[in-house]
Protein backbone atom coordinates (compact mmCIF):
# COMPACT_ATOMS: atom_id res chain seq x y z
CA UNK A 1 0.00 0.00 0.00
CA UNK A 2 2.67 2.41 1.11
CA UNK A 3 4.84 1.30 -1.75
CA UNK A 4 2.08 2.02 -4.20
CA UNK A 5 1.62 5.43 -2.65
CA UNK A 6 5.30 6.22 -2.86
CA UNK A 7 5.38 5.08 -6.46
CA UNK A 8 2.46 7.33 -7.28
CA UNK A 9 4.19 10.25 -5.61
CA UNK A 10 7.35 9.61 -7.56
CA UNK A 11 5.48 9.53 -10.80
CA UNK A 12 3.75 12.73 -9.91
CA UNK A 13 7.00 14.44 -9.22
CA UNK A 14 8.07 13.35 -12.63
CA UNK A 15 4.89 14.18 -14.46
CA UNK A 16 4.22 17.48 -12.81
CA UNK A 17 6.62 20.02 -14.10
CA UNK A 18 4.83 23.06 -12.82
CA UNK A 19 4.86 21.87 -9.24
CA UNK A 20 4.78 24.35 -6.43
CA UNK A 21 8.47 24.48 -5.73
CA UNK A 22 11.14 25.03 -8.28
CA UNK A 23 14.86 24.39 -8.16
CA UNK A 24 15.29 28.09 -8.58
CA UNK A 25 15.36 30.31 -5.58
CA UNK A 26 12.33 32.45 -5.05
CA UNK A 27 14.24 34.62 -2.63
CA UNK A 28 17.28 36.28 -4.09
CA UNK A 29 20.24 37.06 -1.89
CA UNK A 30 23.22 39.29 -2.36
CA UNK A 31 26.24 37.42 -3.77
CA UNK A 32 28.02 37.36 -0.37
CA UNK A 33 24.92 36.02 1.33
CA UNK A 34 24.48 33.44 -1.41
CA UNK A 35 27.99 32.13 -0.72
CA UNK A 36 27.12 31.93 2.98
CA UNK A 37 23.85 30.22 2.19
CA UNK A 38 25.51 27.65 -0.05
CA UNK A 39 28.04 26.82 2.65
CA UNK A 40 25.22 26.39 5.12
CA UNK A 41 23.22 24.19 2.72
CA UNK A 42 26.02 21.64 2.78
CA UNK A 43 25.79 21.36 6.56
CA UNK A 44 22.09 20.59 6.65
CA UNK A 45 20.61 17.23 5.94
CA UNK A 46 17.78 16.77 3.51
CA UNK A 47 15.61 15.03 6.07
CA UNK A 48 13.86 12.65 3.70
CA UNK A 49 16.92 11.79 1.64
CA UNK A 50 19.59 9.27 2.34
CA UNK A 51 22.69 11.07 3.46
CA UNK A 52 22.35 14.05 1.14
CA UNK A 53 22.66 17.66 2.14
CA UNK A 54 19.95 20.11 1.10
CA UNK A 55 22.52 21.69 -1.17
CA UNK A 56 22.85 18.49 -3.15
CA UNK A 57 19.32 17.18 -3.14
CA UNK A 58 16.61 17.84 -5.67
CA UNK A 59 13.81 16.73 -3.36
CA UNK A 60 11.00 19.14 -2.63
CA UNK A 61 11.82 19.15 1.06
CA UNK A 62 15.35 20.26 0.24
CA UNK A 63 14.01 23.04 -1.95
CA UNK A 64 11.70 24.19 0.82
CA UNK A 65 14.52 24.08 3.34
CA UNK A 66 16.77 26.08 1.05
CA UNK A 67 14.04 28.64 0.76
CA UNK A 68 13.66 28.80 4.55
CA UNK A 69 17.40 29.32 4.96
CA UNK A 70 17.41 32.08 2.36
CA UNK A 71 14.44 33.84 3.90
CA UNK A 72 15.96 33.71 7.36
CA UNK A 73 19.26 34.94 6.04
CA UNK A 74 17.52 37.83 4.35
CA UNK A 75 15.86 38.61 7.66
CA UNK A 76 19.31 39.13 9.10
CA UNK A 77 19.65 35.89 11.05
CA UNK A 78 23.13 34.49 11.68
CA UNK A 79 24.13 30.99 10.66
CA UNK A 80 23.81 29.85 14.25
CA UNK A 81 20.34 31.34 14.55
CA UNK A 82 19.25 29.47 11.46
CA UNK A 83 20.77 26.23 12.67
CA UNK A 84 19.04 26.60 16.04
CA UNK A 85 15.76 27.39 14.34
CA UNK A 86 16.00 24.27 12.17
CA UNK A 87 17.11 22.06 15.07
CA UNK A 88 14.10 23.25 17.03
CA UNK A 89 11.91 22.29 14.10
CA UNK A 90 13.48 19.06 12.85
CA UNK A 91 15.71 17.90 15.69
CA UNK A 92 19.46 17.40 15.70
CA UNK A 93 19.03 14.94 12.87
CA UNK A 94 19.17 17.85 10.46
CA UNK A 95 22.75 18.78 11.33
CA UNK A 96 25.24 16.85 9.21
CA UNK A 97 27.99 18.03 11.51
CA UNK A 98 26.84 17.17 15.02
CA UNK A 99 27.20 19.76 17.74
CA UNK A 100 30.01 19.34 20.24
CA UNK A 101 28.32 18.48 23.53
CA UNK A 102 28.30 15.79 26.18
CA UNK A 103 26.31 13.37 24.08
CA UNK A 104 28.75 13.67 21.19
CA UNK A 105 31.95 13.92 23.19
CA UNK A 106 32.91 10.34 22.38
CA UNK A 107 32.47 11.02 18.70
CA UNK A 108 34.58 14.16 18.64
CA UNK A 109 37.26 13.22 21.14
CA UNK A 110 38.05 9.63 20.15
CA UNK A 111 40.35 10.57 17.25
CA UNK A 112 42.31 13.00 19.43
CA UNK A 113 42.56 10.52 22.29
CA UNK A 114 43.69 7.77 19.95
CA UNK A 115 46.36 9.97 18.44
CA UNK A 116 47.62 10.95 21.89
CA UNK A 117 47.64 7.45 23.38
CA UNK A 118 49.00 5.90 20.21
CA UNK A 119 51.64 8.60 19.95
CA UNK A 120 52.82 8.02 23.51
CA UNK A 121 52.92 4.25 23.01
CA UNK A 122 54.82 4.57 19.75
CA UNK A 123 57.26 7.02 21.29
CA UNK A 124 57.93 4.66 24.14
CA UNK A 125 58.42 1.76 21.77
CA UNK A 126 61.27 3.53 20.04
CA UNK A 127 64.67 3.72 21.53
CA UNK A 128 66.36 7.04 21.88
CA UNK A 129 69.71 5.87 23.10
CA UNK A 130 72.13 5.82 20.17
CA UNK A 131 73.98 2.85 21.59
CA UNK A 132 71.06 0.48 21.68
CA UNK A 133 70.27 1.27 18.07
CA UNK A 134 73.73 0.35 16.92
CA UNK A 135 74.28 -3.37 16.61
CA UNK A 136 77.78 -4.63 16.82
CA UNK A 137 79.52 -6.43 14.03
CA UNK A 138 79.53 -10.21 14.10
CA UNK A 139 82.18 -11.99 16.08
CA UNK A 140 84.84 -13.84 14.14
CA UNK A 141 83.35 -17.19 15.01
CA UNK A 142 79.88 -16.17 13.94
CA UNK A 143 81.22 -14.74 10.71
CA UNK A 144 82.86 -18.05 9.87
CA UNK A 145 79.73 -19.96 10.63
CA UNK A 146 77.71 -17.57 8.47
CA UNK A 147 80.06 -18.01 5.53
CA UNK A 148 79.75 -21.77 5.90
CA UNK A 149 75.95 -21.60 5.84
CA UNK A 150 75.96 -19.30 2.86
CA UNK A 151 78.38 -21.50 0.97
CA UNK A 152 76.11 -24.48 1.50
CA UNK A 153 73.08 -22.48 0.54
CA UNK A 154 74.47 -20.98 -2.64
CA UNK A 155 75.74 -24.22 -4.10
Amino acid sequence: MLRRFVATCLLFVWLMPAASTSALAQTTLSPEMEVRAKALFLQLRCVVCQNQSIGDSDADVAKDLREIVREQMLAGKTDDDIRNFLVARYGEFILLKPVFAWHTAVLWLTPILLLLVGGVLAWRATSRSPKSVKSDALSKQDENELQEILRQHRD
Partner: peptide, 13 residues
Protein backbone atom coordinates in the same frame (compact mmCIF):
# COMPACT_ATOMS: atom_id res chain seq x y z
CA UNK B 1 74.17 -0.69 5.59
CA UNK B 2 76.76 -2.64 7.55
CA UNK B 3 74.48 -2.65 10.57
CA UNK B 4 71.62 -3.95 8.50
CA UNK B 5 73.89 -6.66 7.20
CA UNK B 6 74.86 -7.71 10.69
CA UNK B 7 71.23 -7.96 11.62
CA UNK B 8 70.32 -10.18 8.70
CA UNK B 9 73.39 -12.30 9.38
CA UNK B 10 72.23 -12.86 12.95
CA UNK B 11 68.82 -13.84 11.63
CA UNK B 12 70.46 -16.44 9.37
CA UNK B 13 72.57 -17.80 12.20
Amino acid sequence: LAQEKAEISRRIL
